[in-house]
């Protein structure tokens, strides 16, 4: 079936099988491989993308269901003026090791700080509890999301 999804600001019209999962569409048809697959049971969140601004697990959404939506993947986080604050904070606070969960963690983090400019440790842990990380023990992920929130708040206060 014909679908058209706006991914990171660009339109992608394609003909897909109804059964095509959004994550496979993004990875294999569109060719953006920053979105990963880590499980089959909607448990790990490695495939997280923002669909119309809301984080969802792209392994459990049909590509056809995203027809007409705006999807943001990790490749779309960076803006015209450089890295998204969440990206630089992940590096600064050592919020990633192998990097496999990182795209999902950053997208959830970006979505959290858009709603909650000053998330507590518990707020962040709760928000990322649909995303698994096997490397970091989460401590530095939490820290990075808080750092990004603080930087966003600071820059909006300053402007």
């Amino acid at each position: 079936m014909e679908i058209n999804i706006t991914i990171n600001g660009s339109d992608h019209a394609s003909d897909v099988e109804p059964r095509t999962l959004l994550v496979d569409h993004i990875r294999r048809t569109v060719g953006l491989t920053g979105t990963h697959v880590g499980c089959d049971t909607t448990s790990c969140g490695a495939c997280t993308v923002l669909m119309d601004g809301t984080p969802v697990k792209a392994c459990t959404v049909l590509a056809a269901q995203a027809d007409g939506s705006e999807v943001t993947t990790v490749e779309g986080l960076k803006g015209a003026d450089g890295l998204h604050p969440i990206q630089s904070a992940f590096t600064d606070d050592h919020g990633l090791q192998c990097g496999f969960c990182t795209p999902g963690m950053m997208l959830v983090g970006a979505s959290l700080i858009a709603e909650n400019p000053d998330p507590s440790d518990d707020d962040v842990r709760w928000a990322i509890s649909g995303n698994l990380c096997r490397c970091t023990g989460y401590i530095n992920i939490v820290k990075a999301i808080q750092t990004a929130a603080a930087r966003v708040a600071e820059s909006s206060n300053g402007s």
Partner: peptide, 9 residues
């Protein structure tokens, strides 16, 4: 119910 991302959908 479930986890935050599953709850979104």
């Amino acid at each position: 119910v479930a986890d935050p991302l599953v709850r979104n959908r």
